[in-house]
Simulated scan of single mutants.
Amino acid sequence: MLPEENVREYYMIRDIRDTPKALDAVVKSLDGISEVAASARKFRKIFFIGCGSSYYAVLFGSWPLMKNGSVLAFALPSSELILHFSDAVNSDSLVVGVSRSGRTAETLKALEICRGKGAYTVGFTIEGGSEITGIVDEPVVLDIGEEKSIIMTKSFTAFSLSTAMFSSILSERISGEKQTLIDECKAIPSLARSLLSYEDKIAATSKRLLSENIERFIFLGSGPSYPIALEGALKVKETSYVATEGLHLLEFRHGPMATIGERLTLVISCFLGENTVHLKNFVSEFAGKGADIILISNSIDLGESTLKLPPEYSGECKALLSIIPMQILAYYYAVGKGRDPDKPRNLSRYIQRF
């Protein structure tokens, strides 16, 4: 999308548009990721850690292993592992940490503690030569180029895909069960490019939300799209400073639905496969209550306003791709409010002290 006359274009939207190239770089790194997964096959207790967007990325990335009945997989904020779960880590553990900068204080500290307990450690980053590469057993550096905005966009998507591929490869080797995402990964960059064509439509939606004085968002997801909902909520919160939250889809009915009737928009990323009836019932129920709904789905019969993704891919694939329209929405909503999404208030590229 070309920026309107006299409207500044920030780095954040350029980083989002660069996502397909970043995903291409992840695909090219798959041989290296596969080698790291091969060395981790013997572990049966696996911890994924990160902070902020990196935590949501590993929450998504751990999904293939969380479904594997032969291994225990956990995704935790780095600080929570330090404060509450470090005693669960031992020499039978694998700990996977993610940090865009490679310098995030809590993540570095958690990895040091875990390695001291005999755990095998893996660190994902986009900064070669950063601290994380020197303290883990296996560093994985993704060559996705610089992300100029403080806000994580293309790096989030790259970390989500790379850790999910790591989990899928490891899960397949542990259980022998075929992991669909492994075969789909090469198509994901081109699918991401196609989603960027929604930019004008999403920008117009953001303009509508601003004109209607929408000041609260609830992002909803289920299964692998739940971490994506959390990340979508964070994008709006950290760029526009409005109230947002991320919830499991059907948990919205257990209390939070009382907020319907306020200036509120529901953003739903949901791909339930044979359970799509639950999504249809949900949309029907809350549209009937007057809820403003933005839906990202593969379903073809949920209304013309739906941002549709191709139905032939796995739920993990579609869930990951759905972050792109959420990021675009956050960007145009923030710019429309007069915010600078590249320099959000009180934030820096990483937290230096724990």
Results as ranks from 00 to 15, higher is better:
E304W: 07
I132D: 03
S167I: 04
V36W: 06
V71Q: 00
E106Y: 06
P227D: 11
M326T: 06
A319P: 01
P64E: 04
E146F: 09
E147F: 08
H278C: 07
I49V: 15
P3V: 12
S91N: 13
V122A: 06
T157R: 03
P20G: 10
K308T: 13
L191C: 08
L209T: 07
A243W: 13
I16Y: 03
P189E: 05
I132G: 01
I294K: 04
I132Y: 01
L320Y: 06
S70T: 11
A105P: 04
H248C: 10
Y55M: 06
I218P: 01
V141K: 00
H278M: 13
R8V: 14
E177S: 12
V136R: 01
I82A: 09
S70N: 14
L264Y: 04
I268V: 15
G338V: 10
I323W: 04
E312S: 14
T180A: 14
S197D: 13
C185H: 11
M66N: 10
R173G: 15
Y55P: 01
E177F: 12
K308H: 14
L65G: 05
P325G: 09
A330H: 02
S39Q: 13
R208L: 13
V267T: 06
I113N: 05
I351L: 13
G255M: 10
S130Y: 01
M66T: 12
I351M: 11
I214P: 02
P20V: 10
S79V: 12
I144L: 07
I144S: 00
L266V: 12
A110E: 03
R44K: 15
L247E: 03
V335S: 08
K308C: 08
Y241A: 08
F124L: 08
H278R: 14
N68A: 14
G97I: 00
S225A: 14
Q179C: 03
K178R: 15
F124S: 01
M1I: 12
G97C: 05
F271Q: 00
I46V: 15
R14V: 12
S78W: 02
V95M: 05
L81S: 05
R349L: 09
N213V: 08
S322H: 06
A164S: 15
R41G: 11
D18C: 11
L81P: 01
L230Q: 11
T259G: 04
T244F: 02
Y120Q: 09
L142Q: 02
D342M: 11
Y55G: 02
S99Y: 03
L23G: 05
L142Y: 04
T104G: 00
L249I: 09
L247N: 00
I46P: 06
L309F: 10
S160C: 09
S54I: 03
D15N: 14
E127W: 07
E312Q: 15
E127Q: 13
M165W: 00
M66A: 14
H278F: 15
Y226D: 01
I202F: 03
V136E: 04
E147N: 10
L249E: 02
G303Q: 07
S225T: 08
A37H: 00
F124Q: 03
G255Q: 10
P256H: 10
S78R: 02
G232C: 05
S93K: 09
L30N: 08
K42F: 08
A22L: 07
S167Q: 05
R14D: 11
P325D: 07
G134E: 13
E112H: 04
G116C: 06
L81E: 02
M152D: 04
L161G: 03
S206L: 11
V89E: 01
G128A: 14
S53G: 14
F217D: 00
H254E: 12
F354C: 12
